[in-house]
Design a protein around this nucleic acid. Sequence first.
DNA 1: TAGTGGTCTAGACCACGCT
DNA 2: GCGTGGTCTAGACCACTAA
Lengths: 242, 242
Amino acid sequence: MSTATLSQLNLPLYERIRIDIQARLVEQGWDPDLPIPTEQMLAQEYQVSIGTIRKAIDRLVQEGMLYKAQGRGTFIKQPDFKNSLLRFFRFRNHEGKQAVPTGMVKSIRKVPPTPAINKHLQIDEGMALIELQRLRIVENKVVLSEQIWLPERLFSDLLRFEPLEFGNLLYPFYYQHCGQFISTAKETLSFTSEVEDSDLNARKGDMLIKIERLAYNLENRPVEYRISLGRPENFKYEVKIS
Amino acid sequence: MSTATLSQLNLPLYERIRIDIQARLVEQGWDPDLPIPTEQMLAQEYQVSIGTIRKAIDRLVQEGMLYKAQGRGTFIKQPDFKNSLLRFFRFRNHEGKQAVPTGMVKSIRKVPPTPAINKHLQIDEGMALIELQRLRIVENKVVLSEQIWLPERLFSDLLRFEPLEFGNLLYPFYYQHCGQFISTAKETLSFTSEVEDSDLNARKGDMLIKIERLAYNLENRPVEYRISLGRPENFKYEVKIS
DNA sequence: TAGTGGTCTAGACCACGCT
DNA sequence: GCGTGGTCTAGACCACTAA
């Protein structure tokens, strides 16, 4: 543990421990399939009672970084995209049943830096990018059209693959080939009538839903910026207020 | 405490106590300005240790029913509408600064039952309703147009007021005059191009955002159904995924 | 059967708010 | 100064998972 982190701040003990555990897991790049040290071990290591460790870990669980499995241990959690705004597009197939769209990469290439995107990704103006075009399809019909940008420095290994070699899901692919584990994301919903999109058959003037996503790795650094476009007809989003 | 509630179920002690506390506060209609019994008192009353009471209450805090204030006590919480979808309409005044719209009731009247709305409110088909028309205004310009329905049985006292006597906020007014405390709400965002709205200058075919809200009282019964319409241009909504 | 997290106890002292 | 919630201890026993 880093003594500096644990001493100086005027925070409750469990908060300081929470921060320290978080930093350790991030720096060591903990394997998501391996349990982190047990509560007993951590209690002994930090020389505090087990209740204090539990409170620290409970915070990380609430934050979404860890999850607990009784009898097995505590693990690093992959983000749960069931809350994604994209999940609130409801598509139906020809039988009228609900259908989950399939992701398909259309193209991948290295592109020069773009000021606005480099700023989103918090990287230097001069750093090159990787750009992916991706479609989400239901029964051969394009229902969402996506553009994805990644820092070339971290993701250059992706350039070795052909578009069709990317599976339905990108994030496991990122982790497998570039060691980048997506931990959280921020999404923004807005509207635009100023883009043309041949995949969606949308002309200028047609109102489209635009969902921007900025995805963060375990170190809390933005590593993917994504724009998804779709038609508003089937969109329905719910929130609970309390 | 109701012994039935606390015994039969095969739940952790703190869960059974949580349920019992919740039921007690709802049934007694606890004053939001008065603290609930202290943790010490509850621990003694339920004959459990204080940690168990804390866990029960922490659940209710997480759920949004209570909030704690160190040194003062624990209180019933009013819902926090900073998460409302409506807050994600961004309006600007003539100086380009962000402006919060003012609410203004345009009309209030008793109306006969409407099957769809009575169903939302979970009341009998034959029960009469109160209907409010309400506008949200920024610098004399209507930016949102609302229709609100309430069960006449619970809210008949509102009919004694003229539209302009309703203030900017409705929920405190409900509590003051009808004893109905709004505790949570559920909102749904969708789109429509099939309505005409003279207040918003919208014709059929214009795409509008439609936000439906169902608001619940402390007993978790729906008591208000509301439809808000607005133009999509200034709408921007964010979520965090983890 | 061994080891994990889940629940629960019966206290202690601290920090904060009100009066 | 008094009473509130906030933090923390040092255990105990239970329920679940995996080998």
